[in-house]
């Protein structure tokens, strides 16, 4: 138990010292995950909105696939991206394996179905409420999607936060395609996973604390978004 508190003290001092290795790892984590979430939103928001708002052919199939992909095991995604990017894979010539780009690709694949599926649900509910009014006004298809996305903005912000929460805490996929290379592809979760076994406990614990704080922040942000949505009567 004394060991635990000793390690804890060292971990906290690492954080307070603004340790450069630690900062580098946190920065890369955030860069990879935020980029992946941004790309996932660019793809997932319109996709979810279109599937949620229109009775397009294959709608049920798309919904089932999206919901299934939501539960994708990260290691499987990592494995598939690895096979695609490895020297003998179809995307081998791009030489992306063990780069931050590879990690962004893997996380984007993980997060996009989440964003799309949750967006579809949100937009579908809202459209149920708006459909007759839209039909009465004669709102065109593109205007409909844009209006629904805009009016669901608070809910969609929490969707994006949910995607961020999942991606930033994920370890399997980024470990396989990133390889946890020091100063290149080492992110918070892979560092914790590998440094713990090497006995570098204070760094692992420091990152664990940062991850916890991030999780708290994400939840606080979700609650703040909800509260301001309620205040603005936009729910």
């Amino acid at each position: 138990m004394g060991d635990f508190w000793g390690t804890m003290a060292e971990a906290i001092s690492l954080i307070l010292q603004w340790d450069t290795d630690l900062i580098g790892i946190i920065a890369l984590s955030l860069r990879v995950t935020l980029t992946a979430v941004a790309i996932a939103c660019v793809i997932g928001l319109p996709l979810g909105a279109v599937v949620g708002a229109f009775r397009i052919p294959g709608r049920t199939l798309v919904t089932v696939v999206l919901n299934a992909l939501m539960g994708l095991p990260p290691v499987v995604v990592g494995l598939i991206v690895y096979l695609m990017l490895s020297a003998s894979g179809p995307l081998g010539p791009l030489q992306l394996l063990y780069t931050p780009t590879a990690m962004i690709i893997a996380q984007t694949i993980l997060v996009t179905p989440i964003v799309a599926a949750l967006t579809k649900q949100v937009v579908e509910d809202l459209h149920g409420e708006y459909a007759e009014q839209f039909a009465s006004l004669g709102v065109g298809r593109i205007d409909r999607v844009l209006a629904l996305l805009w009016d669901a903005r608070y809910s969609l912000l929490t969707v994006a936060l949910a995607g961020f929460g999942r991606a930033v805490a994920e370890v399997g996929a980024v470990l396989i395609v990133g390889g946890n290379i020091n100063h290149v592809t080492r992110v918070m979760t892979t560092t914790i996973a590998l440094e713990t076994s090497k006995g570098n406990l204070q760094l692992a614990l420091a990152l664990g604390i940062v991850l916890l704080v991030l999780a708290f922040c994400v939840n606080a942000a979700v609650m703040a978004v909800r509260a301001s949505a309620v205040r603005a009567a936009y729910v």
Partner: peptide, 9 residues
């Protein structure tokens, strides 16, 4: 409509 629908704006 019998129950007016206002956008969230």
């Amino acid at each position: 409509f019998q129950r007016p629908v206002m956008l969230r704006r």
